[in-house]
Amino acid sequence: MSVVETINVEVAYALPDRQLILEVNVDAGTTVAGAIVQSGIMMEFPELDLEHSDVGIFGKQSKMETVLADGDRVEIYRPLIADPKEVRRKRAAEGKAMKKGGGILADAG
């Protein structure tokens, strides 16, 4: 009988008013999808639709089949509400700069 190595990962999902990071100990070689299922985060957020959600690890989108490493944080993302182009256009119309640093730095410079 071989001993299967395990790794510790986190699974996280966030709404504006409620955010959750679940720690879960999974077998080495577990995928993003596997960790999400094992974490039980679907039970906490019943409205979560994995089929139509994008996922990633620490701010970088990945596939459901990506194999996890120890310490990874699996993240389930939500789509944007605003249209980035629209926001940019609106800010330009209002005369606000869009470079890094937004209004505060732009005004100062």
Binding site: A12, Y13, A14, L15, P16, Q19, I21, D54, G56, F58, G59, K60, Q61, R73, E75, Y77, R78, P79, L80, I81, P84
Partner: peptide, 18 residues
């Protein structure tokens, strides 16, 4: 402290506990 959850062109959300 990795307190913001999000990715490129996906919603960014602050994890308040972090």
């Amino acid at each position: 402290v990795d307190a913001i959850l999000g990715a490129a062109k996906r919603m960014h959300t602050v994890i308040e506990s972090e």
